[in-house]
Amino acid sequence: MTLAKRIIPCLDVDNGRVVKGVKFVEIRDAGDPVENARRYNQEGADELTFLDITASSDDRETMVHVVEDVAREVFIPLTVGGGIRELADIRRMLNAGADKVSINTAAVFNPEFVAAAADKFGSQCIVVAVDAKRVSAEHEAGRWEIFTHGGRKPTGIDALDWVRKMDAFGAGEILLTSMDRDGTKIGFDNELTAEVSAAVRVPVIASGGVGNLQHLVDGILQGKADAVLAASIFHFGEYRISEAKAFMQAQGIEMRDV
């Protein structure tokens, strides 16, 4: 086995600036997207994900310019999420230099959109972002549902049924966020991740809850994830990506050397 597991820093972008909030409050400015991207690339990030959290759709054009600027000088895969609702949104981001787009809410409201997007642009650039929340009781077997609106609105859709469907519809990758863990820094929901990873053919990115480097290891070894996504532990210099890679390598996980 020589394919490396990936570390993907995620940058939330609001009106062209990288920000980081904890559980959607206390938004802190973390700087210029291009500078952040350059630094992460130098530290050995395997990919970058930008999430556009700009509230007004009028300002979405700003994100296009962010992607253009980053793609001109950072040569690792770039994923853009947030506000991807139509084929035209995907076209715009790919033309700006994104390699993949991540579709979340639009997939829940219209699963056919994922099929149309994969058909038009190829599965390799369609990431389906899945926000799941545990709905089973403490001692029951794990059961998770898809939630929208930042984890506030239940949809009644079973998470495992959903990821199988998205795989069948042409998703090239699943970005799985545990809404129970997001922002908590207590680690991924590895039981959820392992169930999802076993349910689909495509790679799974674990997200939500990373607070230290052991959590990244656990996401791979226990959660069977193909990649791990984290934001805050990298943004504020708590850990460097190179440090994370060395730590994971030391526990037997295959990583790309920096």
Binding site: M1, L3, A4, R6, D46, S123, G172, V202, P203, D226
Partner: peptide, 15 residues
């Protein structure tokens, strides 16, 4: 893979 562990398709990432 060689030891019977399932591999994801697409082959995606750094090899």
């Amino acid at each position: 893979d060689h030891s019977g562990v399932r591999l994801k398709v697409p082959h995606m990432g750094w090899n």
